[in-house]
């Protein structure tokens, strides 16, 4: 088990390395006029050249890369060109905001998809129709539109929750919930549509399997067959779908943060990209890929726990 985790972590580190390297080459190699952006149009060429050399941007690409990597091993992701804030610290401030809504959305997605998927697989009829309707609505209405509609209805018209801003959980749990729930719902709707359909399909498949009939022939209760045997076997494919949904929720959070004016990872990614803030952009990439690697590892571990065939000793 430990060697499995280590191997997956190793593969993850290689992935992070590859993606950040590509990003580094593409961004640092793109000759973005960083010094000119910082100093503004009124600065002289000499001033621009001085700042370029001060930032080390006139060095060969490989040398810049070497210093970035060696900094990385010391836990130093560099300092933002614009805010002069260390990138790692900025990430530490921003990620909790994004994770708040993504984790809340994940919980909503998992719970609602399982309930809806199982219920519509077993009961069919009106519930099944309701699930189909939710799926269609979720796919038809873009998250952008859905987010705006929710803001308009629940924040602006009904005043149930604040329209913008974020309250950290350590400040006020109810405030945190009120500021996170709408963005989380917008994120979750897409995830629910995909995952509930997957759960429904897997449960129907599993219920038709021979082992279910044989368990019934041995007087195993219907409850145990559904919740112990069928659900466990159906969970494997569902978890794989969920891990992909998590990645896309994380991506969608970048837009959603903007609608709700949340000072999160997406806002940071956007502002540093617009400005051409290279260390910040690399930090954004590093954390984004790192988070995906960790989530995939967790999903792999869950799959291994659920499915003995996938277990690697």
């Amino acid at each position: 088990m430990i060697s499995f985790i280590l191997r997956r972590l190793g593969a993850g580190i290689i992935l992070i390395f590859v993606v950040t390297t590509i990003t580094f080459v593409l961004t640092y190699g793109a000759n973005i006029p960083v010094a000119r952006n910082i100093l503004g149009p009124s600065a002289t060429e000499a001033q621009v050249a001085a700042l370029t050399s001060q930032l080390g941007l006139d060095r060969p690409l490989i040398e810049q890369y070497g210093s970035w990597i060696s900094g990385l091993f010391q836990g130093d992701l560099g300092t933002s060109y614009f805010s002069s804030q260390p990138v790692a610290a900025a990430m530490g401030d921003r990620l909790p905001v994004t994770l708040s809504i993504v984790v809340l959305a994940s919980i909503l997605t998992l719970v609602i998809s399982t309930v809806l998927g199982v219920a519509s697989a077993v009961r069919g009829g009106a519930l099944d129709a309701a699930l189909q309707a939710i799926t269609v609505i979720a796919y038809v209405f873009p998250g952008l539109v859905l987010g705006i509609v929710l803001v308009y209805v629940f924040a602006i018209s009904l005043h149930w929750v604040p329209a913008i801003g974020f309250t950290p959980i350590e400040e006020s749990v109810s405030g945190w919930f009120a500021s996170s729930i709408l963005p989380a719902v917008v994120l979750a709707i897409g995830g629910i549509a995909a995952l509930a359909a997957q759960v429904r399909g897997s449960v129907i498949d599993e219920l038709g399997r021979d082992y279910v009939r044989t368990l019934r022939s041995r007087d195993v209760s219907e409850g145990s067959i559904l919740f112990k045997h069928v659900l466990r076997n159906a969970a494997g494919p569902a978890f794989t779908t969920f891990s992909l949904q998590f990645v896309s929720m994380f991506g969608a959070a970048l837009f959603i943060e903007r609608i709700f004016a949340l000072p999160g990872y997406g806002t940071y990614a956007f502002t540093s990209t617009i400005a051409g803030d290279l260390p910040a952009m690399l930090g954004v990439t590093l954390f984004g890929v790192g988070l995906v690697v960790v989530v995939n590892l967790l999903v792999d571990l869950a799959t291994g726990w659920l499915n003995p065939k996938a277990r690697i000793s």
Partner: peptide, 18 residues
């Protein structure tokens, strides 16, 4: 499979200047 696990939107945004 590797490409599938990339956070695509993050990279699209980061690569915007490029």
């Amino acid at each position: 499979n590797l490409l599938m696990t990339f956070p695509a939107l993050v990279l699209v945004i980061v690569l915007y200047p490029v």
